[in-house]
Design a protein around this nucleic acid. Structure first.
Ligand SMILES: [Zn+2]
Ligand SMILES: [Zn+2]
Ligand SMILES: [Zn+2]
Ligand SMILES: [Zn+2]
Lengths: 136, 136
DNA sequence: CCCAATCATGACAATCATTGTCAACATCTA
DNA sequence: TAGATGTTGACAATGATTGTCATGATTGGG
């Protein structure tokens, strides 16, 4: 066995996938496919934009990265450490992101849903503000 | 005074705006600009798609309607009764939507943010499941 | 080590909701 | 009622994302 594949999703290990994964490993904030593509090209890589898109999608599919959507609709990706369900507290200035668990919210959500006769409930939750640093 | 304008945002009252508002008033679910446009054309209106987009944007701007985003990124609009801050419990089958207040969540969000040194925090929260009806 | 079977890549075209443009039009007030 | 100005609608433009497909890379077997 040479290099192990990044995920079940993706059968082979390639320079491109490795490069993207390394970028994400050293990054604290959520980044877009275009961001990562620009950074890689800047660093001399000849990687194509389509590949970056596809790779990030595959990572997301394999739960390797978390996805969030900007108000404008763009997709942003981040390599999260927590394996379990969690939410994000994002600095709207520098992008710094903290992963937070929300047992309180989970309970509240389930109760509210049940009270209204809803079943099979899920939720999306996002916190955004200014981090200590950016708060000056 | 003839007809009062729908909002400060929009100086004049027009057939188009009235038509859109009436549709929303009789609708329980979130709808897209294209949905509403299709419905209006179906009913014989000659309204243009651009106008529907602009009108909904203006309504949202004036806090007359709530906006939510589909996973795909599309904008959906709904006329909500609650004037204060609230969240939505949406049926992913029929679209039926219930407005819910979330004091518990607000408190939790503020605490979490403060614990991490974040200031000026906001949040987005969405609940989705199957309504009693659609649960069979 | 070498090859064939496949998976992956990248340049390019195609999508598609949304936005921009602007001349024709409607509304409202004086 | 007429003019000033907000609105409309057909159409073009945008821009992130996805589809296509020939070429290139990876991997397991021989
Ligand atoms: Zn910050
Ligand atoms: Zn949660
Ligand atoms: Zn609402
Ligand atoms: Zn339902």
């Amino acid at each position: 066995m040479a290099t192990k594949p990044p995920a079940e999703n993706m059968a082979r290990s390639t320079k491109q996938r490795t490069a993207i994964l390394e970028l994400l490993e050293h990054d604290d904030a959520f980044r877009s496919a275009q961001d990562l593509h620009a950074i890689l090209r800047e660093a001399g890589s000849k990687i194509g934009l389509t590949t970056v898109y596809r790779t990030l999608q595959a990572f997301a599919e394999a739960d390797i990265v978390d996805v969030m959507r900007l108000p404008g609709g763009d997709h942003l990706y981040r390599l999260c450490s927590a394996e379990e369900h969690h939410h994000h507290l994002v600095c709207r200035s520098c992008g710094r992101t903290v992963e937070v668990a929300g047992p309180t919210v989970e309970r509240w959500a389930n109760k509210v849903a049940a009270d209204h006769g809803f079943t099979d409930v899920g939720h999306t939750l996002e916190l955004h503000g200014l981090c200590a640093e950016c708060s000056k």
